[in-house]
Design a binder for these strands. Structure first.
Lengths: 144, 144
DNA sequence: CTTGACCCTGACGTCAACGTCAGGTTCTAG
DNA sequence: CTAGAACCTGACGTTGACGTCAGGGTCAAG
């Protein structure tokens, strides 16, 4: 059984975060007679999983829905539906992220191409900042 | 030239958000003599881009660094480096999201498999909640 | 000229996931 | 037994991206 500081260190989060997770019902702990929390080794993995879901944009409440096995150990059809919703939400997120990444990558490519000695990379960079493939309007002139 | 409500509606954000973007230096607007904001059509695309970057986990300040062309129209080598950093950050995010998605998908698969008429899907679901391929410890018994 | 939709500038409220501080207890090393 | 590290429970503070309310201009239509 691990102490809270140990779990925090291994999972790469703060002690406060673990207490917060408990408050939110995401992580249980046994208590010593004096009231100190004791965690099984598996708590480390669970915390990392919670962090993953947070990183996926889920809230604590979402995670609570997504981790029914934490409390009940059972996955009902309704829960499966919610899980699927969350999964689809993540899919949409990944799609948006990929799009954003591509636009950034394009700006970078243009920038790297012009930086070495080019006199005025502005037009190309500005184009990259525009919504995909839209022709220039009156905004964002080449700074001249 | 569009009015602020028009831009907000087309970009799918609130009027307040647009004023906030201006406050953060992410979006400029001309003003009528009476002080009302007027935007070019391209503002809609810009707002969508900003939203994309927000969705990618960037802060307003990050976006401000990432969109230097908004103000200067030029991409310096230092900016390129920052762009690359952000891109890599997004890559890491995508990787994490994909991992989270996979774990969710696995839980769903197990759930769907057992739901139709299975009497006790708990063990499988519980396994799916565990860090990848870790054997059962004393926590999370099959609820009985 | 008045009604109503839209716009303006502050400025305070919100929500989530913690950070941080206060004031006190417990555990471990010497 | 004593110092110090680690733990406890409140409870208030923080940050980012807005929401929302107050109080007041603007403008096309009737």
């Amino acid at each position: 059984m691990l102490r809270i500081g140990e779990v925090a260190a291994r999972a790469g989060v703060s002690v406060r975060a673990l207490r917060y997770y408990e408050e939110q019902g995401l992580l249980e702990a046994e208590r010593t007679p004096s009231g100190q929390r004791r965690y099984p080794e598996s708590a480390v993995g669970r915390v990392r999983f919670v962090q993953q879901l947070y990183a996926a944009g889920l809230t604590s409440r979402d995670v609570l829905e997504v981790l029914p096995c934490v409390h009940t150990g059972v996955a009902t059809p309704a829960m499966i539906a919610r899980l699927a919703e969350q999964r689809d939400g993540i899919d949409r997120q990944i799609a948006e992220l990929t799009a954003a990444r591509e636009r950034l990558a394009e700006i970078i490519r243009i920038g790297e191409q012009y930086v070495p000695g080019g006199p005025d990379p502005s037009e190309a960079a500005v184009d990259a900042c525009r919504p995909v493939g839209r022709p220039a309007t009156e905004e964002l002139q080449p700074a001249g």
